[in-house]
Amino acid sequence: MRSVSRLNKFVGSGLLAAMVFAFFGCGNFNAPMQTFASGSDLAKWITSLYIQITIWDSIVLAIVLIVLALAIFVFSTREGDPTEPHEHESDLMLELAWTIAPALILMFITIPTVRTIMRTQPSKWPANAITVQVHAHQWWWEFDYPGLHIATGDEVHIPINRVIHFELYSDDIIHSFWIPALGGKRDVIPGQVNQITLIPSVTGEFYGQCAEFCGLSHANMRFRMVVDTADGFKQWVAAQQAPPVEPQEAAAKNGEKIFKNAPCAICHTVRGISGFSKQYDYGFRGPDLTHFGSRGTLAGSIFDNNPKNLAMWIQDPEKVKPGARMPTLGLRGTDLHDLVAYLESLK
């Protein structure tokens, strides 16, 4: 039995060492969706709280593990020892101590928590805030800028150092709007308008994803968020507000005809070309394609936006995105090529 206990110790310490190694092996934070982020004021507040709690947690964990390890290493030597252990059944001071100490630690966690709650859920925001209406659909994101008359899908641009106010709408089921780098998530709930208010502080491209299970293609409901400089944003808004580009090449011209004649226009809007009425949900079931060519990704941000991927998507949406609402139209050959050329020309 003694040898077994020595083996236990040996394997035990090996395990501990391996865990420590693994923990430090996690230094790879080169990840676009990591949550220890500071892309906005909101994210900074959350991260600071996050780190505080992690430190407290680590301290408590260390205490527990050290005591346990000591207990095991010291008292397992008694195995086979005929002396009986002390019948120590209670110790009031000790018990009071380990009731009060955690309570104090919790107080150190709770107070900043409550302050951060109040801070991150403002009931008012400045009048000059840019409102972005986020509409979650199965399984793509629509972004409307009610003040600017812009609608995009899968990609949202915001300017740096401005108050951005996201209003979250869902037309079907519960989704969750999450850009890890810019702060926490909020559920997008039908019949209820949730909001996130934040001030982005870093320019760049960030990834977001639906975080609440929403059916078959939940994994394929991603989006991109671009934080521009003030000027960059202005230019982008101007470009998006412009009417769609007239197709120049022959293929693209032919593609425009196909777009109008094929059922594409039932669900998709290209301003001035197709799209009818929001009331009848005509032209609004799928993303607005007016400036489709300017976007970096497509189909719920699961692909880069290039002709090859677009063709693959149009050819068989169900195959690349299970449950996709977009029907297979049976386009192939030059028709497909021309349609792709047209859509990609909509810069």
């Binding site: 009931s123 709408y169 039908p190 019949g191 209820q192 308008v193 949730n194």
Partner: peptide, 10 residues
């Protein structure tokens, strides 16, 4: 509370 704060019900 929900109804008070989020008064716009779609």
């Amino acid at each position: 509370h929900l109804q008070g704060v989020l008064s716009f019900v779609v």
